[in-house]
């Protein structure tokens, strides 16, 4: 896979979302990014048909975190055969909400002068990690204690070879609230806040000389925990 890391938040590798053969010659590929607190869908539209394409527009179905286009799909000139245009579509997270399976699924409709086409894609929920997600230390301790252990999920993150995990995670708005070293284990206590106000608390355990990290996640909405652990994996390995 591509290395989607610039300075800042993790961005996944670009993938083809809609194949030309299924969309009368329109190929759509793309990725997502969070830049300066704004979620963006970076889309490439390629015309693989023999006629010009125009009148592009986009709509999302309701989704788990209320992601919705915050503006029009700006394709300013008609797209000739074999041409590609790159568009950055800003997204808001205040649209209509409906729980999807998987939770991070997005159903998209794109229209042009020829027809309407549909595709699904998945986004890393780290797109939804906000910049003010560092929890107050006292609140962290109280919340950690308050969330029942039934709501705790544990994950192994294998083959990590990093010496600045904390900095790397902070680039994607995973904040270290406290760090302690106990018997050659670094215990990092971390907080994340999602755009919908859900807080996620985590303990990342890094043993000296052991490339396998242990991540424990506590959240009042435990269904998000596995998606958070996927983000740790992607961020730490990219």
């Amino acid at each position: 896979g591509g290395v989607g890391m610039t300075s800042g938040s993790y961005s996944p590798p670009r993938v083809v979302w809609l194949q030309a053969m299924k969309a009368k010659g329109l190929e759509i590929s793309g990725t997502f990014a969070r830049r300066g607190g704004v979620i963006q869908m970076d889309v490439s539209l390629t015309n693989k048909a023999m006629s010009v394409m125009s009148d592009f527009a986009v709509q999302f179905n309701k989704n788990s975190f209320g992601m919705a286009p915050a503006g029009p799909l700006q394709v300013l000139t008609p797209l000739g055969p074999n041409q590609t245009v790159e568009v950055s579509l800003p997204l808001s997270s205040t649209g209509p909400v409906m729980k999807m399976e998987p939770l991070n699924n997005l159903q998209v409709a794109v229209k042009n002068n020829i027809d309407v086409f549909y595709f699904s894609c998945q986004y890393p929920i780290s797109l939804l990690f906000v910049e003010d997600g560092k929890m107050d230390r006292q609140v962290f301790l109280a919340t950690w204690k308050d969330i029942p252990s039934d709501n705790e999920a544990q994950f192994q993150i294998k083959d990590c070879h990093l010496n600045a995990a904390s900095n790397k995670l902070q680039g994607s708005n995973i904040f270290t609230v406290a760090k302690r070293t106990v018997e050659a284990q670094d215990m990092l206590y971390q907080s994340i806040k999602l755009t919908n106000g859900i807080w996620v608390l985590a303990e990342l355990r890094i043993q000296t000389g052991n490339p396998n990290y242990t991540l424990s996640v506590k959240c009042r909405a435990p269904e998000v925990s596995q998606y958070v652990s996927q983000c740790y994996e992607l961020i730490l390995k990219n």
């Binding site: 230390r137 006292q138 301790l141 950690w144 302690r180 018997e183 215990m187």
Partner: peptide
């Protein structure tokens, strides 16, 4: 004093989690 208390509480949490 509060800060000292919080430092101490995190140390206890880490100890307790590392050696349950």
């Amino acid at each position: 004093e509060l800060e000292d208390g919080l430092d101490e509480a995190f140390s206890r949490l880490a100890e307790c989690r590392a050696n349950p």
